[in-house]
């Protein structure tokens, strides 16, 4: 049982082009890209996306292996969606397995679904890997700030998110420590019936909750002693500044989204014109 090596979209510090972008630019840009990705409905629509992914290690200075690995947690979901699509799409039947039929359309749509989901997660993970949790919540706060006028506590929500993200690794560490401590007192988490195994986690969960509450209380005191007031107007040490490179990056991302959309629209027509000429 080990929690130390979780790296699902964990921030990897760096100084790459993508790292240096304004978080707002990255978030809105990713949103635009992912929307365009959703438009891709045919296998050849993904060609530009493969090229974009291939450019990522160079732009983000994160190894291809780490980027591809970030999609691993959803691999099961991807497989499941693909299976459902293969068997449940009506169309030209090409094979039959009892009541299950495999259709040409099913295979195509399973492929698209799978690739789309995987790309979606991978691009979202690149955003998380290149944006520090601090920058991320800062950016989110600024993007959502118009909603503050409607009475939504945007900056408090951003603060909560920052704190929650900050404490995830700490909680993993604490859990690991308590697990080990109870194991050294002979606790056995791996054998016995389901109920017995679930019960064996009580000696882990109780101390964990006690710790979390103690930590929360300490943190609250520490924040109050530094004059944190919910709803108070906080100034920033490093205000987000939208620079020329952010405008450029944003333009590139929008251009790419438009291009991939047009590619998806025009490719079949161009292909059929070419075929006609032959």
């Amino acid at each position: 049982m080990k929690f130390g090596n979780t790296s699902i979209g964990q921030f990897i510090p760096g100084e790459s082009v993508i790292h240096l972008l304004d978080p707002r630019c990255k978030m809105i840009g990713t949103f635009v890209l992912l929307t365009a990705l959703f438009m891709a409905g045919a296998p050849w629509d993904f060609v530009p996306w493969v090229f974009l992914l291939a450019a990522m290690p160079r732009l983000s200075r994160i190894s291809m292996r780490a980027i591809l690995r970030s999609g691993r947690p959803v691999l099961f979901l991807v497989m499941f969606t693909m299976l459902l699509n293969v068997f449940w799409t009506p169309g030209n039947e090409i094979a039959r397995l009892g009541p299950l039929r495999i259709t040409e359309e099913g295979i195509v749509s399973a492929f698209c679904m799978g690739v789309r989901l995987y790309f979606l997660v991978v691009f979202a993970a690149i955003l998380m890997m290149t944006t520090s949790p601090m920058a991320f919540s800062d950016g989110l706060e600024r993007i959502l700030s118009p909603l503050a006028r409607l009475g939504l506590p945007v900056s408090e929500m951003a603060m909560m998110m920052t704190i929650a993200l900050r404490f995830i690794p700490t909680l993993f560490e604490e859990t690991d420590r308590i697990l080990k401590a109870q194991m050294s007192r002979g606790a056995d988490f791996e054998s016995g019936s389901m109920i017995k195994r679930a019960r064996s986690f009580i000696p882990v969960l109780v101390p964990l909750f006690v710790l979390v509450f103690a930590r929360a209380e300490n943190l609250a005191v520490a924040m109050e002693s530094r004059c944190y007031v919910p709803g108070g107007h906080r100034s920033r040490m490093r205000p987000l500044v939208w620079e020329a490179r952010d405008t450029k990056a944003m333009s590139c991302m929008v251009a790419f989204a438009v291009f991939s959309f047009l590619w998806g629209m025009c490719l079949p027509k161009i292909a059929s014109i070419c075929l006609d000429m032959l």
């Binding site: 420590r177 308590i178 080990k180 401590a181 109870q182 194991m183 050294s184 007192r185 002979g186 009580i202 000696p203 882990v204 969960l205 109780v206 101390p207 006690v210 710790l211």
Partner: peptide, 16 residues
């Protein structure tokens, strides 16, 4: 593991 008892740092944080 029974032969070798290990008392962790701040062992009172394991109380449940």
């Amino acid at each position: 593991r029974r032969k070798v008892g290990l008392v962790f740092q701040y062992p009172e944080s394991q109380f449940f």
